[in-house]
Amino acid sequence: MWKLLQIELFKIFKRPRTYISFAAITALVGLIQMGLYIDGKSYVEFMLRDLSMSFEIEGNILNGYLVCYIILQLLLVHVPLLITLIAADLISGEANMGTLRLLLTKPVSRTEVIFAKFGAATIYTLLLLVWMAILALFVSMALFGTDDMLNMKSGYIVQMKSYDVFWRYACAFGFAALAMLTVAALGFFLSLFAENSIGPIVATMSIILVFTILSTLDIPFFNAIKPYLFTTHMIGWKGFFDVKVSEDNEAIIGSVQNLGKVLQAAGILVLHIVGLLIASVIVFKRKDVLS
């Protein structure tokens, strides 16, 4: 199994397209950081325009923690597309090249092949997130410094002490890993049904795009179906950046406002991953591999 995983990892990291994702993230994060470094003040003024009418706000508002939050908010919608490029190619790519049948002649079970391939996709996804964390969090902290973090939500503002933020990012990246693995599992599952990788890649991207649009549209008609879309739960990482308050409206350090809901969202994503993986095993076992 370990040998199989090593082979799959070798295949992934041998392909130049794998590094497109890392390059794209580097470029995107760099561009956002540069933009905020040059004109971040305008962005903060826009976000705080209602508040600054009645309040004086002092401190390093646009610090590394806030910049990382902005980056994640912008990127975590698009990173799934980069993950799809690899995950949706794992089976269909082999089928396209005609190596899938050859692979299955080896003395390994089909279940092992599925687990090895999905394991490799998981490692790739986690590495991509680690790279993103390095760029978005650590580089931002170095460039913009650290201070308390202001999370500007639609109805209220949450202030978190600087020493109360880092663990939230650790949890948020952990959650993001689950969200991205759900995408990887979906792409992987769809790759079982095609003989070339374009079909499953486009299909996965389309599903994510449509679901994301439906999840973010604030129209009552769509609100009823939102809980059933996995994309609704993918932004659950943001839940770690809201805090509980005491009776007299004092933020409780180290608390999470809706931890139950966040964990529920994480659970739903895990169910998706497990479900799609089991479905992949079943489909692959029954699949008549002709290419």
Partner: peptide, 25 residues
């Protein structure tokens, strides 16, 4: 006295927990 604070949901992309707005809000 304070004025209202509001940002469009499309900008903040909040994690919606469908909780009713608390009285203190």
């Amino acid at each position: 006295n304070t004025k209202d604070y509001k940002l469009p949901k499309g900008v903040t992309l909040d994690f919606d927990t469908n909780e009713p707005v608390a009285d203190r809000m």
